[in-house]
């Protein structure tokens, strides 16, 4: 592989069967630190299954996932998140019962220490930690550009801002890697452009992104590396230019979903 850099996430020979159906078949790829990697493929290609395996929602039938040197195969989602991998959701999973900033503060959970008893007794360290996390949450909101909405109820936010809120929540965890599940879904052009800008800026600050996406324009514009799945099999990977030149990809993917491009 000619990409250079430090490997952050390794997907090794992942296979997932549901009954007799092979949803993901022997897929392997690496994600390097500081990279934006896209996983693309037609509907039913196995992207979501793969995504769910990496985040720990599903256990693979075989193969391993390594993150930051740790084998995370079969670990629970929250354990994987605690290791520094957070995600956003295609169908938005904002905590509607909280304010915007509380959502983001919740994102910082893994780096905080307050226990049940400490919280109840509100020992001095809790106050300090609360203050620090509120400031940090505010900075995260500033990064995605919705700091002015910090004290609104999260459910009152329009769709596009909820997506940004999810990203703010994900970065509040100070993760090494963020997985984005179809981040452009449901956004209008202006919102998409802003989101791309946010992602590129965050990458500059050292974050790594893996995303599953339908919107080819975005994929080609911002990805450093692309993995293409079809029918559960990896049929190609490379830079956007390489993907454009890859005949198998063009045949399988573009042939089937011509309207996308």
């Amino acid at each position: 592989m000619k990409r250079n850099g430090q490997v952050l996430l390794t997907v090794e020979h992942i296979t997932k069967q549901f009954g007799g159906v092979v949803a993901v078949n022997d897929v392997s790829f690496d994600v390097n630190k500081g990279e934006i990697l896209a996983v693309i493929g037609p509907n039913g290609a196995g992207k979501t299954t793969l995504f769910n395996i990496v985040t720990g929602i599903l256990a693979p039938s075989s193969g391993t996932v390594r993150f930051n040197g740790t084998d995370i195969t079969g670990k629970k989602p929250y354990q994987i998140a605690q290791l520094g991998m957070t995600r956003t959701f295609q169908n938005l999973e904002v905590f509607t019962n909280m304010s915007v900033i509380e959502n983001v503060m919740t994102g910082a959970h893994r780096n905080m220490k307050t226990s049940f008893l400490q919280a109840g007794l509100r020992v001095p360290s809790v106050k300090k930690e609360e203050k620090a996390v509120e400031e940090k949450a505010m900075r995260c909101l500033e990064k995605v550009g919705i700091a002015h909405l910090a004290y609104e109820r999260a459910e009152t936010l329009p769709y596009g801002n909820q997506r940004l809120l999810e990203i703010a929540r994900a970065i509040a965890a100070e993760p090494a890697l963020i997985l984005l599940d179809e981040p452009m879904a449901g956004l209008n052009d202006e919102e998409s452009r802003w989101l791309v800008e946010v992602i590129l800026q965050l990458r500059k600050e050292g974050l790594t992104f893996v995303f599953v996406e339908h919107d080819m324009e975005t994929v080609m514009a911002i990805s450093d590396h692309i993995v293409v799945l079809d029918n559960g099999v990896k049929i190609g990977e490379g830079t956007p230019e390489e993907i454009y030149r890859n005949k198998a990809v063009v045949a399988a993917y573009l042939g089937e979903e011509e309207t996308v491009c």
């Binding site: 929250y78 905590f95 019962n97 909280m98 509380e102 503060m105 919740t106 996390v133």
Partner: peptide
């Protein structure tokens, strides 16, 4: 005190969305 703390947010997050609670660890 619990409600307005890390613990309280964790509790409320469970009601809000278990998937997202999982996702932030």
């Amino acid at each position: 005190n619990i409600i307005h703390s890390r613990v309280g947010r964790a509790l409320r997050s469970i009601e809000g969305s278990e998937a997202a609670s999982d996702a932030v660890g």
